[in-house]
Design a protein around this nucleic acid. Structure first.
Length: 500
RNA sequence: GGCCCAUUCGUCUAGUGGACUAGGAUGUAGCCCUCUCAAGGCUAAGACACGGGUUCGAACCCCGUAUGGGCCGCCA
């Protein structure tokens, strides 16, 4: 029994996309499930579309998700090199082999000629468009003439012009195509570099790939690949075409750039963007598993080991699905709440430092901040949101744009000013400055003044934090500290008195 | 336009001929809790695209229609 060997084969033409990450994940899951090998191969045959930095991004994003590769860049392996740009002689050798054996041929058409041909086909409204094989049946003399002219050429595969090809897809079952619809695809470009089709088939063969799990957009090129394997006399691997991920609104393949939803919500498409927004890698991993696959139909939260144990290609969804952005939001919140407070603290620090413009060192020394972490934890869905719940800790003074908001229904500026004054006086002389003492004192004050707790507490919250929403009040006051609390309360009192 | 793939609550999905009065999750709405917002608990509405077959019996098998998606490059 041969061991499973799967690969993720991105091209460095952009940052790691959510769709690519899901493809990588399913390959990785299958490898880990079967005890097989997960290979990373870089398909850098399109020099024109190379994007600087994309390679590094692919590596760091994969590692961030915990998708470690057993063979490939930076780790090596017995089937290298793992960059296609370093395997050029192989492709040329086998392309020539195909020509020598009559399976492929040199085509001397220029891009301009091909464009003109397509133009004519469109004008005629021809049913089948594409290369008309004009160079396939050149006589030896014609061929020699073109060679003598020194014309550049590409190598095209000579696919059968009739008959059918039927192949098996591990997710969709048997699929049949008519050969008549196939193109004599270019295998080797005029610059001597291979196209995807050639390089992919040769590498998969020589890297002993057993299963190809890739995006659905490749399904229609399987017949071509099938004929390539046949021409070489090689055994094809098992194909499994993963459903494409659609935009969150279900319309169209997920964009290559960020998506703006009708309600203004921005949905990023690159893995690094999610990392930067404060999504947890374990949440992202769990979430991605659920796009096109389901553990058991009812368990939503599960770890890597559970996913690995249960993963099965045959259970992968065949139909395309929208990117469930709202579910990711929820799931990240679940993972944040599950974190040990110390763990969350460490992960939050870089985000806080960036948003609050305060050094991590100073953040670490801030006892009040540390005190609020558990309360922030159950309120945020992304690490980047934490700053919104603690920024007032680092403010010199609180700005209350609208003093009227300090005064709830049933109260006046005067009564509230008096109440806040009493609160400040009470808190100023509390024997101890901690949450139970603060709560006891303020609840007592509420009773003494004949108020509802919400009336007073809401005003104190606004006066001290500048916000209507914050972590629970008493621990928030403790975190802010006695001096600033009293100062801010008194500032609010002054504001109210000035307003009347 | 041609070819190929797909079609279960708004969305992600369970379901592989009888256990389906179609399950879970998210989202939405309501209630409880409550100092705000969350979290948590409870409840509600919400789907087998349509039409034909096959079968004692169909979400599940077959055909057609519709709809969605993918591909038709010297891109991957």
């Amino acid at each position: 029994m041969s061991t499973v060997r799967v690969r993720f084969a991105p091209s460095p033409t952009g940052y790691l996309h959510i769709g690519g990450a899901r493809t990588a994940l399913f390959n990785w899951l299958y490898a880990r499930h079967t005890g097989g090998t997960f290979i990373l191969r870089i398909e850098d045959t399109d020099r024109a579309r190379f994007v600087p930095g994309s390679l590094e991004d692919i590596f760091t994003s994969l590692r961030w998700l915990g998708l470690d590769w057993d063979e490939g860049p930076e780790v090596g392996g017995p089937y290298g090199p793992y960059y296609q740009s370093e395997r050029l002689p192989l492709y040329r050798q086998w392309a020539d082999w195909l020509v020598e054996h009559g399976k492929a041929y040199r085509c001397y058409c220029t891009p301009a000629e091909l464009e003109q041909m397509r133009e004519e086909q469109r004008a005629r409204k021809q049913e089948t468009t594409g290369y008309d094989r004009r160079c396939r049946y050149l006589s030896p003399a014609e061929r020699a003439a073109r060679e003598a002219e020194g014309r550049s050429w590409v190598i095209r595969l000579a696919v059968p012009e009739s008959g059918q090809v039927t192949f098996h897809d591990a997710i969709r079952g048997d699929i049949t195509f008519d050969n008549a619809r196939l193109q004599d695809a270019v295998l080797l470009k005029s610059d001597g570099w291979p196209t995807y089709h050639l390089a992919n088939v040769i590498d998969d063969h020589f890297m002993a790939i057993t299963h190809i799990l890739r995006g659905d957009e490749w399904l229609s090129s399987v017949p071509l690949h099938w004929h390539l394997y046949a021409a070489f006399g090689w055994e094809p691997p098992v194909w499994a075409h993963l459903p494409v991920i659609l935009n969150p609104n279900g319309q169209g393949k997920m964009s290559k750039r960020e998506i703006i939803m009708p309600d203004g919500l921005v949905v990023p498409v690159f893995v690094h963007q999610y990392r930067e927004m404060g999504y947890l890698p374990e949440a992202m991993f769990n979430f991605l598993c659920g796009v096109g696959w389901s553990l058991d139909g009812f368990t939503e939260i599960y770890d890597r080991a559970t996913a690995i144990a249960a993963f099965d290609i045959a259970q992968v969804q065949a139909s395309p699905g929208a990117f469930p952005a709202d579910k990711l939001e929820w799931m990240n919140g679940v993972y944040i709440r599950r974190l040990a407070p110390d763990d969350l603290w460490e992960r939050m620090l870089p985000f806080l430092a960036q948003r609050l413009h305060v050094s991590e060192t100073r953040l670490r020394e801030h006892e009040g901040l540390r005190l609020l972490v558990p309360f922030v934890q159950e309120r945020i869905k992304k690490l980047s949101e934490a700053a919104d719940y603690v920024d007032y800790l680092f403010a010199d003074a609180i700005v209350i744009p609208d003093p009227a908001e300090l005064v709830p229904a049933g109260m006046t500026s005067q009564t509230m000013a008096a109440a806040l004054e009493r609160a400040a006086q009470t808190l100023a002389v509390l024997p101890t400055w901690d949450e139970p003492a603060i709560e006891a004192a303020l609840r007592e004050l509420v009773t003494a003044l004949g108020l509802k707790s919400g009336q007073l507490f809401g005003a104190i919250r606004l006066a001290v934090t500048g916000k209507k929403v914050s972590p629970p009040l008493f621990v928030t006051l403790q975190a802010v500290g006695r001096e600033p609390v009293c100062a801010r309360l008194n500032a609010a009192v002054a504001l109210l008195k000035r307003g009347t």
